[in-house]
């Protein structure tokens, strides 16, 4: 077990290093934005004295590297600062939004991951037959349409024509769990359709790639039916690449939902970041970007660790 702990420790260290570099890039990127926040806030008519006073009160007169360490250390302490636009605590602002986004991503994953796995296995089982081609066409189509298009198609059929689901996903902290799930149904479905194709095709390909292996022949010569050969003998060896794709798609579900949130007016992190960029609310943008980056790195770390754990050679050394 010792080498495993070492490998995982290395991955975690690399993850932390990456996150630190990302924090540098975010901070530097924001500094490079044209214009000055103080001028922006006070408008054209501000006198140089008032601008200077505001800069001082915002701490903008301090050199950039000091501000960076200040920002980083308060971030590490969970102190995200206050929003410039409305003076609210950023942590308080982000918390419900992050919860909404995570809930939406979880629902989309709960729909898409099992469907993708089963669909991929079925496609591999009936490879090169009508079933496989049908699955292939459907998934290709769903991956080709832009997500807003999928969203509007779903709204047209499920909200406008059938009228069974709401087209707006307006939720707040008082909404009950059931209402929340109903409100989230359409955006969750949209996201599921968009991410499923990738995972399904990876499952199918990974399994089929393994079928040339001799242990598959051994399994067939034991008289096992094809589904058992696939599920018991091919799938366990295909899990590492499948897990990687699933995790990448989960990361996309959290960080890439901006368009879908906007279409359904869903109060998630994506919406917040779009609004804040419009208002030039730099601290909020920085905080959201850092959260997205952390999620991404954490999920990739998970996929690395998963593929290590699923390798019997590493889990059970000689």
């Amino acid at each position: 077990m010792k080498p495993i702990a070492k490998i995982i420790g290395q991955r975690v260290a690399f993850g932390a290093l990456t996150l630190w570099i990302v924090s540098l890039i975010i901070f530097a990127g924001v500094q490079l934005l044209p214009g000055d926040i103080a001028t922006e806030l006070l408008g054209q008519s501000a006198t140089p004295e008032t601008v200077a006073a505001l800069r001082k009160s915002l701490g903008l007169d301090v050199p950039a590297y000091l501000r960076y360490f200040d920002w980083l250390s308060s971030m590490l302490h969970g102190n995200f600062g206050t929003a410039l636009s409305n003076g609210r605590d950023i942590a308080e602002l982000i918390k419900p939004r992050l919860y909404n986004t995570l809930l939406l991503a979880a629902s989309a994953a709960a729909i898409s991951v099992p469907l993708a796995l089963v669909g991929g296995i079925v496609a591999a089982l009936y490879r090169n037959t009508f079933v496989d081609r049908a699955i292939n066409v459907v998934t290709l189509a769903s991956i080709s349409f832009p997500e807003f298009f999928v969203a509007y198609i779903l709204i047209l059929f499920l909200a406008v024509h059938a009228g069974i689901l709401p087209s707006l996903s307006d939720v707040d902290s008082t909404t009950s769990v059931l209402d929340r799930l109903i409100a989230m149904a359409l955006p969750a479905l949209t996201l599921a359709v968009v991410v499923m194709a990738h995972m399904l095709r990876m499952t199918r390909t990974s399994i089929i790639n393994l079928l040339g292996n001799q242990y598959i022949e051994t399994a067939r010569l034991k008289g096992l039916p094809e589904w058992r050969v696939l599920v018991r003998h091919a799938l366990p060896n295909a899990l590492a690449p499948i897990a990687t794709v699933i995790v990448l798609n989960l990361a996309y579900l959290i960080t890439g939902v901006v368009v879908v949130e906007v279409v359904f007016v869903y109060p998630g992190l994506g919406q917040l970041i779009v609004d804040s960029v419009q208002k030039r609310d730099i601290p909020v943008v920085q905080a959201c970007s850092l959260i997205f980056a952390a999620t991404y790195i954490l999920l990739n770390l998970t996929s690395d660790v998963l593929s290590i754990v699923m390798n019997p050679r590493l889990m059970h050394p000689k």
């Binding site: 001799q214 242990y215 022949e217 034991k222 050679r313």
Partner: peptide, 25 residues
């Protein structure tokens, strides 16, 4: 019918056991 024979009435021993065993089990 074939499946009910294989692994019951006839079994197979392959050349390279290292490749013929499933590494995951």
């Amino acid at each position: 019918g074939l499946r009910s024979l294989r692994g019951r009435e006839i079994c197979y021993v392959a050349q390279s056991a290292a490749a013929a065993f499933n590494p995951a089990h």
